[in-house]
């Protein structure tokens, strides 16, 4: 009984904060509403007694959303939403697509005849997961490892301008005070 109530409350909160992501102007608010949505999903997993996956979702998503906020605020105009602006382009199209996808996924989840559980509930799902990773899913893990290494190298290559050659490869100091005038007109060119 309580499980069902908790499940539905969390579900509604997760979807509601997901929708709210697109209703706010501030990048900070949008990012952390998305985090809230993930945390509610983590709550669902905990209700379903998936202890490890639930805690792991909190663990991973918090760090990742904090980093995402860093990038959103670094690159998006008007990150605090202090000036009114439209966050979504092609609003109608986006709405149609997202509603259609949501309905399709929900329908699939409800309509598909899920198989009955054959084995009994594992006494310790984390342990089972560890066994899987270390025995028959070993190859998957190794591929992931190489993939992560490739990610590190590729990301660094793409993101660093200077590299190991230090200051010599760095662009030189910008002209002093180029913005002494720029401060007077505060509507940037590409706003």
């Amino acid at each position: 009984m309580w499980e069902v109530i908790a499940f539905w409350v969390l579900a509604v909160l997760a979807v509601a904060s997901g929708i709210a992501v697109f209703r706010v102007d501030s990048m900070a608010r949008a990012t952390f509403l998305l985090l809230a949505s993930f945390l509610f999903v983590a709550g669902e997993m905990l209700v379903l007694e998936l202890h490890y996956l639930g805690a792991l979702t909190v663990l991973m998503m918090t760090a990742e959303m904090a980093i995402m906020a860093v990038f959103m605020i670094m690159f998006m105009m008007n990150p605090a939403g202090l000036e009114p602006m439209e966050m979504v382009h092609n609003k109608r199209g986006a709405l149609v697509i997202s509603v259609a996808v949501f309905v399709a996924l929900t329908a699939a989840a409800l309509v598909v005849p899920w198989p009955e559980r054959a084995a009994p509930h594992p006494s310790d799902a984390t342990h089972q997961l560890g066994e899987a990773i270390m025995r028959d899913k070993m190859l998957v893990m190794m591929v992931v490892g190489v993939g992560l290494f490739a990610t590190m190298v590729a990301a660094t290559l793409l993101a660093t301008a200077r590299g190991r050659y230090g200051e010599h490869a760095a662009p030189s100091r910008p002209e002093p005070s180029p913005h002494a005038h720029a401060h007077h007109h505060h509507a940037g060119g590409d706003r």
Binding site: A28, Y52, L56, L59, M60, A63, E64, I67, V70, F71, I73, M74, F75, M76, M77, P79, A80, L82, D124, T126, H127, L129, G130, I133, M134, M141, V144, G145, L148, F149, T151, M152, A155, T156, A159, T160
Partner: peptide, 30 residues
């Protein structure tokens, strides 16, 4: 609250990749 240019963004990418490892690490430990 403007665009805050962090200089350690490369480390965030490194962190994200390495962090994935923790998914395996805890089940492995047991």
């Amino acid at each position: 609250v403007s665009r805050f240019h962090v200089r350690w963004y490369v480390v965030t990418l490194l962190f994200l990749a390495f962090d994935m490892e923790m998914v395996f690490m805890y089940p492995w430990a047991v």
